[in-house]
């Protein structure tokens, strides 16, 4: 094999390998919310960075994060065997869940608390689309997912004031991901088909 043949082989090999990236990988990355810093406006940049932190905190709820909750929330609690939803005195909605056997129930509960929501297990709601408007920035949204097999619940804190008008919250868990599963949360456009309103 001469040099040209070897180089051609190498290029073909690299191209073949590169073609192995599934299209869904790009789709997932394009669907995520990135908050570019705006030109030269410090105040705006600060606000948007805080907004990015809020969204990033929520997006960080991939199942790789291990931060089990220490105790159930105490106010206005709605309890099932699978999850609890409560509203804190500061307005935060706290979701504790041991499993998501009843995603529709959790979705309805969140909507009842005034959070336009889509909750799915095993797939992402195809009716949901990334929110493209201005992001608000209080930054309390976040949480952690407990270790598999743990008897401690996973915890999600939702600050409703971080969800802009016209937007809602998407929660998708147990999404197949390279032989494992991942969770995904993010701010999406509020539509009847996605978030109920």
């Amino acid at each position: 094999m001469n040099t040209d043949e070897f180089e051609d082989n190498l290029r073909e090999t690299l191209a073949h390998r590169a073609a192995g990236v599934p299209a869904t990988a790009g789709d997932r990355l394009r669907q995520r919310t990135y908050l570019p810093r705006a030109h030269g406006r410090a105040a705006l940049a600060t606000a948007m960075t805080a907004g990015a932190a809020a969204v990033a905190a929520v997006a960080a709820l991939a199942v790789t994060a291990l931060a089990p909750a220490s105790s159930p929330a105490s106010h206005q609690s709605h309890t099932t065997q699978a999850w609890t939803v409560s509203k804190e005195s500061n307005g935060d909605i706290v979701v504790l869940y041991w499993s998501l056997r009843d995603p529709a129930g959790l979705e309805a509960k969140l909507r009842a608390y005034g959070v336009p929501s889509s909750v799915t297990v095993g797939h992402i709601n195809p009716a949901c689309h990334r929110y493209t408007g201005p992001i608000l920035k209080h930054g309390r949204m976040g949480g952690g997912v407990s270790a598999p097999g743990s008897d401690r619940p996973s915890r999600l804190v939702i600050d409703p004031s971080d969800i802009p008008p016209g937007a809602g919250l998407q929660i998708a868990v147990n999404i197949p991901y390279h032989g494992g599963v991942r969770g995904l949360t993010g701010v999406v456009q509020a539509t009847p088909a996605c978030t109920g309103r």
């Binding site: 690299l14 570019p36 810093r37 390279h178």
Partner: peptide
């Protein structure tokens, strides 16, 4: 990234981190 990392999960993480860093410096 896939050719660099040789692993799909790490590939996505790398590209996501890259895009986040670009976003932070987008101006």
């Amino acid at each position: 990234a896939y050719l660099m990392a040789w692993d799909l999960a790490e590939t996505e993480d790398l590209v996501q981190e890259t895009l986040l860093q670009v976003a932070r410096r987008w101006a």
